[in-house]
Design a protein around this nucleic acid. Structure first.
Lengths: 197, 197
DNA sequence: ATTAAAACGGATGCTGCCTCCGTATGTCTT
DNA sequence: AAGACATACGGAGGCAGCATCCGTTTTAAT
């Protein structure tokens, strides 16, 4: 019996090449046509057959998760920026904006995110990334609560849902004005009323 | 040339019968399988061909609008209840809940509602119903503002969006607890801070 | 009963999903 | 360098749903 970590053979070169091309093409199509875009079209434009696409990414969600993975560096970068500023309330707000923008990148993204977030069993490739985001949100929330800026009843998960919703609304074409008002409304909703810096 | 209002002929009996059967069947399918259910299946179960369905309701949205129409009596009834209570803040809150429940009736309903709400040109059969709801919301908002219970910056449209979002979240399977917290957060967001009854 | 308008319904063409397997490609061995 | 073997490729094909079109049937009027 062989230890599973040991590989008897170098992986083939075309595998990684195809995977990279597929990811790149998928990202473009998701950007242009939303998350529901035709996977056949992606495969065709990537110059591979449908079978190859499905072997690399068995489901649409798997492909989506892989594309998001490559894009997650943005979020990490913004986290670094956010940690710079000392104000926990400001940090929370910026983090929520960062998530919202991340979620708005492709139209139709919030739906699968929500579906993955509620799942306990990681039955979706998006579940783990979602949990990471929720945990991160919860940390920002706790910090702001500790500083007396955010109501005690608020949970990170709640604000994750809120960010998802805002992204969903934005993706459905609502004007930036109404969106801004709603965002402010939510912010005012989670803020502690007599908060003073 | 005949005045368009005058009908030369009694409408055929099967027309109305089919229409009624289709609406009834569609409602059941929307309830069970969501708004995205197969229209072919609806037609088959209603005992008509696909052509008949599409003649009566040229698009999925048209069918949806017609189904919602029959269900709108609920909302009207709740409006009557709401007008009973004198408190405008309470009235607004109950109205928002009523809309949220109405929107949650079929999974996948919030999406087309949002799409119809933002459209200026009534290019969708849902646009007019949506506008009615938004206007009604605005009236509840104004009354509550006048009584000093709601912040001046809030608009009816904003809370319509909020109700849509809550319904969307609920439809995606979020537990009732988180949903309740989010609802409270929103309520606290639009309320005037120093409001006293 | 006849006629003509109006509605029916299903065959049809299309797109997209996903799988399966014969074939091609790349890697290791000698 | 060449053969052998594993691995990946790709596209044909089956399936489901959408939306349309037109020959046929049903219905109301005469």
């Amino acid at each position: 019996m062989v230890i599973s970590g040991r590989q008897g053979r170098k992986p083939r070169a075309d595998v990684q090449r195809n995977r990279a091309t597929l990811l790149e093409t998928a990202q473009r199509h998701f950007l242009r046509h939303g998350v529901g875009t035709s996977l056949e079209a992606v495969a065709k434009e990537a110059g591979v057959g449908p079978g190859t696409l499905y072997r690399h990414f068995p489901t649409r969600e798997a492909l989506l998760a892989a594309v998001l993975q490559t894009r997650s560096e943005e979020l990490v970068a913004r986290q670094a920026d956010i940690e710079q500023l000392g104000d926990p309330a400001e940090a929370l707000e910026q983090w929520l904006r960062a998530m919202e923008e991340y979620f708005s990148a492709y139209s139709g993204l919030p739906e699968p995110l929500m579906a993955a977030a509620r799942a306990q069993e990681p039955d979706s490739p998006l579940t783990i990334p979602c949990d990471i985001l929720i945990t991160a949100t919860d940390q920002y929330v706790r910090a702001a609560q500790h500083a007396g800026h955010v109501r005690a009843s608020v949970q990170g998960y709640d604000l994750f849902l809120a960010a998802c919703s805002l992204a969903w609304i934005k993706g459905n074409g609502t004007d930036e004005e109404s969106l801004g008002r709603l965002r402010a409304l939510i912010a005012s909703g989670y803020s502690e009323r007599d908060a003073q810096a």
